[in-house]
Amino acid sequence: MSAYVTTIATMITIQAIAVCGLNVIVGYAGQISLGHAAFFGIGAYAAALLATKAGLSFWMGLPLVICISGLIGLLLGLPSIRVREDFLAITTIGINFIVEALFRYVPFFGGALGIGGIPRIVLFGIRMKGEAFLLLSAGFLAICMMLSWWLTRSWASLACYAIREDESAASTLGISPVRFKLFAFVIGTAMAGLAGSLYAHYMQFISAGDFSFPVSVGFLSMLVLGGMGTLWGPLIGTIILGILPEAFRSLVDYRIFLYTLLLLLMIRFQPGGLLGEGSAARRVLAPLLRGGRR
């Protein structure tokens, strides 16, 4: 595999982990989020700071990164659960801008210069890069997808689905909307934190612009394209939108425009996404997709 293809594939697996997390928030619990890149960034900055300032290895820092991302997800999720739909989307956009601004303007986070010199991940004495890193990130993606699969079969996910479908009706059945919205936020943001940590150690340099609002739009586009609430949708959407920009490099300046157009087309013609309810692909692949049917 050429270095170019390996790099693209690695970025796709890292982004797919973040989109899996977004799927828990948006697809399972029905909470629209347009600020997921903030949590991807929180994971990346936490990993970078733990590695460069505290001297922790990726493996030592990873549990802390996941906890920090999940905890901040919980804290930022608290105000978010008081608003719904359009207002929730605006709130999450605001969170993205605030977090990006903190990274950009607070010297502790490296300011406009970002953070460099992030060490590579070492596993069994091997410095992970190229195909080895791809395998590592694919392994983490597999774990996230297994966790998502397990979630689709748990009582917690049933509660999340019920809230997604009708919050008021769910609460009359003894399901606490606050508890399960926060549960989804914590799981989803922790996954974004994991993706951010992998990203920081892969790129070895990060700056605030890597986690800006357009990145959040990109994550949501991947999820909507693949199919919200499905198991394989986040991966399929990330693969397609990970490859397309490479295939159409000349259109790079129009990326946000194209993502927006794609979102509108999906909402109009295939609201459930490529693997969503009622899609042509779903009918053909139904036996393989039972894991995330809802």
């Binding site: 049933l158 689905y161 019920a162 479908e165 009708d166 008021s168 009706a169 769910a170 309810e277 809802r294």
Partner: peptide, 9 residues
Amino acid sequence: ERSRVFPRL
């Protein structure tokens, strides 16, 4: 009122 079953479950 109007049952409000969960449509996609």
